[in-house]
Design a protein around this nucleic acid. Structure first.
Lengths: 240, 240
DNA sequence: CGCGTTTTTGAAGCCCCTCAAGTGTAGTGG
DNA sequence: CCACTACACTTGAGGGGCTTCAAAAACGCG
């Protein structure tokens, strides 16, 4: 029973038992953090690479006036860029959203992994490219989709990502975000997020209560979102 | 007199004469493309790495309904990700906006550069991280800034980037975008971009005509934008 | 139960969009 | 030198999607 990190890497490339052991071992140094805990803050000097093992986190930026914009969600298996260390300081913050177990991998150990294990390196590249792809998809959402499409698109994205790491139980998964959190990610107000979620529930596309999201009608949700089913799938094919 | 690519790499790291020659040589295979020419399209298999030598280009995604969202501008010195080749297909398209000279570097040659020249590798990492940082900044703009702030922020970004590669002449540089192009990047309508540009002109923050942008009042523009002067600068410090 | 947080609902208003027409500005050919 | 065309820019009027402000209801937890 390997951890979420290993599970995710396996979806990106073929790993030998030794690779798996190496990844497992790299996560030996993990810790549980409470909700709303900043792992690293904008302006800080980049430290170790963080790997999510359980729980949710997000990358975000604060605005001078006090607003917050979330720029990415992190779920089990996700980790932050390998190369941030070449920068003097972080351009954004990372915080837990729920209680979360997070592993810290030292820079040197990370570089050893990369140097010695080509399959792992390749999987790292893939995750980096996919993460970038998600950033671009968010820009498209913010720029060209209205509120209901935007919410639907985010839920589709999270649904696919949850599926990929085996978080899914009968079209449902734990999504313990407040509506304020969703609003911070979507560039909307919490009030409007509330109304849009109601609309999606009324249309019987989703059900959402007690932090558990159920996708009732996948096709309907994807249609509303204008979600390209392939956009994350395509990148899921394994490379030899 | 080195090309824009070399000039940009120099702002990221210290390069030996040999490094510079290697970069110069890598760009030997270049070609001039007309405006609105797709260099690569969403769905295509990734090919060589493109390097902008002159002119402007953009990354963009099309929506089912026909809308276009530009997700990044590329100016001389910019190039596309080193690692896209690990993907089966592009998640976005790249097109010239003006006539542009673009070099194509083969995958094998790229990997040779990376394998043999640590300084160049490091500079590549930095550009990658900075590009990602810009993506995040765009998300913040789209999510939390109104139209005038958003336009101002984009102009600030382009101003800083133009400065870094020496495109600046007395606070002015060539920015031959149509207002439709700006709208496609900002998630606004061309009509509204027009009104906002007028407002910025009326406030004597900028002047813009015949494809030439002049920043009249840097501070005023940055204030309107809520532009963090450090956000790109910080990454500009050279590493030994 | 009592308290803080989150969700829900309502009413009013503004920012930006939509639609539509008119005004440059280049480039072409007579 | 002026028609003619194509394209980009400009301006106006009206409407709608989302915000803002405010308060009540529901939830979760000691």
């Amino acid at each position: 029973m390997s951890n979420a990190f290993v599970k995710k890497m396996k979806t990106y490339t073929v790993l030998t038992d030794e690779d798996i052991d190496a990844l497992d071992d790299a996560c030996r140094n993990s810790k549980v953090y409470p909700p709303r805990h900043d792992l690293i803050r904008e302006g800080d000097k980049p430290g170790p690479v963080f790997v999510m093992l359980t729980g949710w986190a997000c990358r975000y930026k604060m605005l001078p006036e006090g607003g917050r914009q979330i720029v990415a969600f992190m779920m089990p298996g996700d980790f932050c860029d390998m190369h941030v260390a070449v920068l003097d300081e972080m351009d954004h913050s990372i915080a837990t959203l729920t209680e979360a177990r997070v592993a810290s991998i030292g820079r040197d150990e990370m570089e050893e992994l990369i140097a010695l294990r080509p399959s792992i390196t390749r999987a790292f590249w893939r995750t980096q490219i996919v993460d970038e792809s998600v950033l671009r998809a968010w820009i498209v959402s913010m720029g060209r989709r209205n509120a209901i499409e935007r919410v639907a698109h985010l839920l589709c994205e999270l649904f696919v990502r949850a599926t990929n790491i085996g978080m899914l139980m009968e079209s449902s998964f734990e999504l313990p975000f407040t509506q304020v959190t969703l609003a911070d990610a979507l560039g909307l107000t919490p009030v409007h997020v509330n109304r849009v979620l109601r609309e999606l529930k009324d249309q019987k596309a989703i059900a959402l209560k007690r932090g558990k999201l159920s996708i009732i009608d996948t096709l309907k949700l994807a249609n509303i979102a204008g979600f390209d089913e392939n956009y994350l799938h395509r990148r899921m094919r394994k490379a030899a």
